[in-house]
Amino acid sequence: MSNPITSIKLVLLGEAAVGKSSIVLRFVSNDFSENKEPTIGAAFLTQRVNINNNTIKFEIWDTAGQERFASLAPMYYRNAQAALVVYDITKPQSFIKARHWVKELHEQASKDIIIALVGNKVDIIENDESERKVAREEGERLAEEEGLIFFETSAKTAENVNDVFLNIGEKIPLKNDNSSPNDTTITEDQRINLAASANATSEASSCSC
């Protein structure tokens, strides 16, 4: 804990109901809920992890997926250092949407933003491979072309969820001098807040879109 805390602003993007909020809920409070209310606007959550003796604090904006809310997205990805672009491996349409998001991020977001492409809901194909509609290779290819981190995950079973975030965390340069004074001074408070934010997730704000 002697090392300063690095904050990472991270945004989740992707079509409605691909599981953005569920991925965050899994990462932040290791929980899953089958039917979560659709996210409206965006939800804010935080989580801390230790990577190589450094504490990294993820400040996560989980955005709403429906097209109508898309105009809000720039507000959230503009200052983001990392982005999760999520699609549903059983919904080809959501992969097309993911492509669009990647493109938009490259054009509009900060130049050195770290993007992870995430194909969610692998639990569905565990018993029935025919449910898969987006081949793993397709995802891999897009990731390679665009220089993205790539994972296939399941928020339901927790498969690979933490790995996505840890992988991002490792790629973020540690900014020893750049963390805000808050981060170093009121660490305890923020720990408490963390629990609160976990509550927020399960109570009101998150969903699987």
């Binding site: 939800a43 400040e59 408070d189 923020q190 807040n193 934010s197 704000s205």
Partner: peptide, 12 residues
């Protein structure tokens, strides 16, 4: 509250 506290509170 700070930023995080405020947003978290108002979300829930």
């Amino acid at each position: 509250m700070d930023f995080q506290g405020i947003i978290t509170f108002l979300q829930n």
